[in-house]
Design a protein around this nucleic acid. Structure first.
Lengths: 231, 231
DNA sequence: TCAATAGTGTCTGTTAGACATTATGGA
DNA sequence: TCCATAATGTCTAACAGACACTATTGA
């Protein structure tokens, strides 16, 4: 009897229609922009969607996301961040039941010619998307904000050499509020995650800014205090 | 030509074998325990796996995870937390190409009779699992630790009424290091996320402890400072 | 010389962590 | 009365944020 009960509960993997959705982000005009590709509309109205595809056989999810990002970006390199899984019944452009979502972080300025039929859209004026893709974009932003302090998100949106003012601008853009300059730099140096280069950049008037590179030091055990940031 | 290029890139959702894996957690003997179900082994050796199944038609991922958790827990209620997607080629007990993983948080002491062929295993002596399931367990723990300050993880591992000593023990168990009592309580009260009840509990000798409940106040905008906790 | 931006020194209020002390029950 | 646990007050060092100041370039 126990055997029968168990075999009634025995699970089996079902084949579900599955897609990998990629959200390519890059800073543009003091806000984030998302790369969208043109979707074919039966009535030939203009429609947009996130780059996506199904993983091929013997391809891991990361590999699939890398391939999809590369195709949409026209070969540009991007760092991937896992965002999550979406299978809540909302409509997907390819009617996938389940999506695995990845954010692709593209360094500012590195944007060349996007892939075929792809264009960057600033977050503030995103065209209408399929409900699933809208949820993926929202989830991706939220995920980046949440992990900003434990993953090098901001650094992936900058070229290898950057000024501290640029770095601060990226943080402000992601956090959505201005940061205190002196305090930002103090904290940054205390954490020893940037290294000054012997190089300066002059941008119009004003004192030239020193360039830095991301160089996280072997963590000096940062016993972070317990925080409560719930609801 | 442009049209042909685009249609060559046109994506299509593939049907991939897909599973929802659930990691039920509960505190037990000062560490976390995971609920595993007995797997059938051809040679009838003892094998264990996480509760899992494929989502049914017109069932969202959350609904599927809820159903799977309930079946394994024997009806006990549990709060779900999304963990992530796993599709890295590692072997899954049902050979699913892709897993969506959920943690199920079961309040301490609320554990009744688990479902058919299910048993709680302390994290320190987990039996061997399929590689995919081992990765899911590791990922689930890491995800809980990471989100401890932004999601009410610790509170979901406690009954509705608890003492502050119990709450601290849960945090210590998840963080993996002892916390300072006075400081813990100060921070807790400052964040106004617990509310004292007019109820006390005496446990052996010593002064009885006041009971509290989780009651997050309308956030008093906690402008958290920028932190760098990378690598 | 002025304007603009980079970068820093000082002060202050907040708070995490250490320590000590009081409070309140059971054995 | 002693002991164990709860709960809190005080001190200090660390640090975030405000402010003002210096530094260095182009116009």
């Amino acid at each position: 009897m126990r055997e029968r009960l168990f075999s009634a509960l025995r699970p089996a993997a079902r084949r579900a229609s599955f897609a990998v959705d990629v959200v390519p982000f890059t800073p543009m005009h003091d806000e984030l922009a998302v790369l969208l590709v043109r979707a074919m509309d039966p009535r030939s109205r203009e429609r947009w969607m996130l780059p996506w595809d199904a993983p091929r056989d013997v391809e891991t999810l990361d590999e699939a996301a890398t391939r999809i990002a590369r195709a949409a970006l026209g070969g540009d390199l991007a760092q991937l961040e896992e965002v999550g899984t979406f299978g809540d019944g909302r409509r997907h452009p390819g009617d996938a039941e389940v999506s695995a979502a990845f954010a692709a972080l593209v360094p500012i300025g590195s944007v060349g010619q996007p892939g075929v039929e792809a264009e960057w859209h600033p977050m503030s004026v995103l065209p209408p998307l399929a409900p699933r893709h809208q949820a993926v974009v929202d989830g991706a932003i939220a995920s980046l904000r949440e992990r900003l302090d434990v993953a090098p998100i901001a650094f992936r949106l900058l070229p290898p050499a950057f000024t501290l003012t640029e770095l601060q601008a990226i943080y402000e853009l992601l956090i959505g509020r201005p940061l205190h300059k002196a305090s930002f730099r103090r904290t940054l140096h205390a954490a020893t995650i940037v290294e000054p280069l012997d190089e300066w950049r002059s941008e119009g008037r004003g004192r030239p800014a020193q360039l830095f590179r991301f160089a996280p030091d072997a963590r000096d055990d940062v016993r972070r205090a317990v925080r409560f940031d719930l609801l």
